[in-house]
């Protein structure tokens, strides 16, 4: 079948403003949007620029806005998004566009780093593993699934308008350790997220939960951090 992809192109070296460009490509209904982008890049226009690495929904490189919603191009089948109409593909919103579908992820990663996304321990190092019960592991299971694709953070209206907000992903990253029974840095992380630009900026629009390609209940994780702050 033939589908039309309307892609938001931008090359800062040659033009001042982004513009839309349409491509018609032949795909199978079960192909992914990433396959269509590959076809364009490999056979039609080699200057089309986008990120992808594993191409199987694990590395989190190819988050983009497909038909107005943040998705991974490698997990979105053409047949699932009404291929009879042109499919619009844009870079994710709220981060500076470098070229075509590639954005500068640094502000996003900086927010993630600032919540200390690593195990913090105290006391003597045990001679064997740090044991954890199944129910304690279950407590933060949902937020371990994050692949840092930025689909949630760049779907958040608060993040679009306020670059200082940590964003949903950083809070998910903090949640993963705050509720880990082996971790001792929870109080410090909660203090970081108690900031004016922390969890209290969340307006519960649920865009992040809808956007997450891993099915993480992002808004629920943010709410759990809020509750941990209220009831600490």
């Amino acid at each position: 079948m033939d589908v039309t992809l309307t892609i938001r192109r931008f090359n800062p070296e040659t033009v001042d403003e982004p513009s839309w460009q349409s491509f018609e490509v032949s795909v199978q209904p079960t192909d992914r949007v990433l396959d269509a982008l590959h076809t364009i890049k490999w056979e039609v226009d080699g200057t089309l620029t986008f990120r992808r690495s594993c191409a199987h929904g694990v590395c989190g490189s190819d988050a983009m806005r497909i038909n107005g919603r943040n998705r991974l191009a490698c997990k979105t089948l053409v047949k699932d998004i009404d291929p009879t109409k042109p499919i619009t593909v844009e870079p994710i919103k709220g981060l500076p566009v470098l070229k075509d579908l590639v954005v500068d992820m640094e502000p996003f990663f900086a927010a993630y780093r600032s919540v200390m996304p690593f195990l913090v321990t105290d006391g003597h190092e045990p001679t064997r593993e740090r044991l954890q019960s199944q129910s304690d592991r279950e407590r933060f299971d949902d937020t371990t699934k994050c692949i840092l694709c930025a689909a949630c953070t760049t779907s958040c209206p608060v993040y679009w308008n306020d670059g200082q907000y940590f964003g949903p992903q950083a809070i998910v990253g903090a949640h993963r350790f705050i509720f880990d029974s082996r971790d001792a840095g929870g109080a410090e992380r909660l203090e970081i997220l108690n900031d004016r630009e922390g969890v209290w900026r969340c307006r519960t629009t649920f865009n992040c939960t809808d956007a997450c390609p891993r099915g993480i209940e992002v808004t629920k994780a943010i709410q759990e951090v809020k509750r941990a702050l209220i009831f600490r």
Partner: peptide, 19 residues
């Protein structure tokens, strides 16, 4: 360019759901 699309640099409206 299809006329239904807003011109650059605005991009399309984010298609959020009920939330």
């Amino acid at each position: 360019m299809p006329s239904a699309l807003p011109s650059a640099p605005a991009g399309t409206l984010y298609r959020g759901r009920d939330g």
